[in-house]
Amino acid sequence: MTIAPKPSFVLSRRHLLGIEGLSQNDISGLLDLAEEFVELNRQVEKKRTSLRGRTQINLFFEVSTRTQASFELAGKRLGADVMNMSTGSSSMRKGETLIDTAITLNAMHPDIIVVRHHASGAVELLARKVDCSVINAGDGSHEHPTQALLDALTIRRNKGRIEGLLVAICGDILHSRVARSNIILLNAMGARVRVVAPSTLLPPGVERFGVEVARDMREGLADADIVMMLRLQKERMNGSYVPSMSEYFQYYGLDEKKLAYAKPGALVMHPGPMNRGVEIDSIVADGAQSLIREQVEMGVAVRMAVLEALSRNLPNA
């Protein structure tokens, strides 16, 4: 199913800092544009020229393989010059502040900076100090907008729609920027969202996010069309938030038995990287209901769409 992109689609903003604030039209427009790039990416000739002459800097204060690679490929396929900067290889380790780094990079006249940072709000702070477009590739526990968009695209391609679906988001909601962005996006698009987690991993006040809340998987997955699993970091399973890895897997790990609580044929997603045997069993992760590999493919297309849409607003475009 291919929807023809509206060539006139413009995301009327300079930065993409979060899903918060995007309209339903913005989201649909980005997804439509991404559909076009899905097709392109499956061809031998994958190059476009819309970002030719543009400089894109991927500034990663937190290690990432897939998101950084995905943004790099996206930029290159659109013809941009892409530079990667990450912690460990630069002055970011020498005590230079975020703002100084921003000012320094800004002086090199990039057109787009893609930023990931371990602190919530850091990308917004950086965006205020530069003249170019900024894309949030994940800030602390706040937002990860391109992940939510790629999840939405994956869902829409498989279900034909987002509206009216019941999406269960399971796991470490408290620390998850993926969960926050997805909750906002899915609500904006008319889906029902349910979060499923032990109470220690639920943010206080989550019931006011327009979601249903469940503390066990049987109740939480009932009638779900989509089961979206989240990564649980190992240091949070040592008795600080949950008692142990094995207890967590017992009650919240997605295996075939728990997946059977959801609607027959419910689809399984995970933003990666997965902890196999912790939040998700390999049989499910690699099974017929899993969309995990497709999510990665959609990631490149969605990031191309975001880069393309923002570049249409760049000066001299």
Binding site: E20, S120, G121, G140, H142, R177, R180, P203, R208
Partner: peptide, 14 residues
């Protein structure tokens, strides 16, 4: 601690 901290992705103080 509460809804606003949760929305900002910041850890709350009860």
């Amino acid at each position: 601690e509460g809804e606003f901290a949760a929305r900002l992705g910041l850890l709350g103080i009860p």
